[in-house]
Nucleic acid binder design. Structure first.
Ligand SMILES: [Zn+2]
Ligand SMILES: [Zn+2]
Ligand SMILES: [Zn+2]
Ligand SMILES: [Zn+2]
Lengths: 160, 160
DNA sequence: CGTTCACCGTTATGAAATAACATAACCGCT
DNA sequence: AGCGGTTATGTTATTTCATAACGGTGAACG
């Protein structure tokens, strides 16, 4: 992102570091192994970058940061990894930002976000709207297969 | 979109034609006049194209179709018009498609769509989720300024 | 009548995503 | 070990989507 706020630096400490990061990656490996999927090197690297970030990352942020010593990745490498991570529920794409976040919620869920337009924070929440949308859809014979819900506004730390 | 279905041609007749289209444009002019805004030629043309379409249109679809005799518009012309139409509530951007639709709902509202991944239809609906999201937001001190809600799935006409 | 401001046309470029094809690793099987 | 189907990656190039920047035009307002 770009519009980082200067006030309130402390409310951006969402990125995992050190042991917590390693634990999250190990957990992801385990979940993959349990479903016959492979957390290969590029997939693991992209997940690591997402988990360590303080805000949603754009695909080209990931491309630029991919290499250990500054060498960028090729776009398909990162896009394929993101596709995998989304498919397994390790990451979500935020459509209104063209950006990606690691999933912060256990188990199956509809991804929903409260996005701060000031500091870039994107908090994942679990609204009970699946039922609502499904009801509305059923009234018209529509079959829901996925829902994108993204609220924009200001987080508590950035409010005037 | 591209993956138009071959079955059920008749459920795509959403585009306005002739008198209905003219009436909608006249109504838009009136609404603009009432708020000191101007529905200039390019803005009116883009709105006309959106109103006449059977499905969400991409920006470059609009750019290609802009001229009366096949001459395309320049990208900024169309993007500026879209920005204006969105600002006044005449059109909505569908983030998950990078596409635009004319607004089909009177008055102020949260835009929400049931999108058919088969035929491309995007039905605008009015869920009662503003309250829910606002409640969840308030619990954390978040101030909502806008909500994007887009469901993907299959419309009644495209279901197996 | 001159200033102002919103709007427009135009050129160029930046940013995001994918197509297409070749190569390599993995896996279960003989 | 050797094979063959499958899955994943490497690489190049292109397409798609969106905006920056600048100068010109014309209505609006005193
Ligand atoms: Zn999640
Ligand atoms: Zn904030
Ligand atoms: Zn609407
Ligand atoms: Zn359909």
């Amino acid at each position: 992102m770009s519009t980082a706020c200067d006030h309130h630096e402390e409310h951006q400490h969402h990125g995992l570091r050190g042991a917590a990061l390693a634990a999250a990656l190990t957990s992801a490996e385990a979940r993959c192994a349990a479903t016959q999927e492979r957390l290969t090197a590029p997939r693991r690297r992209v997940l690591e970058l997402l988990l360590g970030a303080d805000a949603p990352l754009k695909a080209y942020d990931l491309i630029a940061a991919f290499g250990d010593r500054g060498e960028p990745a090729k776009p398909p490498t990162v896009y394929r990894a993101l596709e995998f991570l989304e498919r397994l529920g390790f990451a979500h794409r935020i459509e209104s930002l063209n950006a990606y976040v690691p999933c912060r919620i256990e188990g199956a869920h509809v991804a929903a976000f409260l996005i701060c337009d000031c500091c870039g924070e994107a908090a994942e929440v679990q609204p009970d709207l699946a039922a609502q949308v499904r009801a509305m859809a059923r009234a018209t014979g529509y079959e829901v297969r996925g829902v994108t819900l993204e609220a924009h506004g200001l987080c508590a730390g950035c409010r005037p």
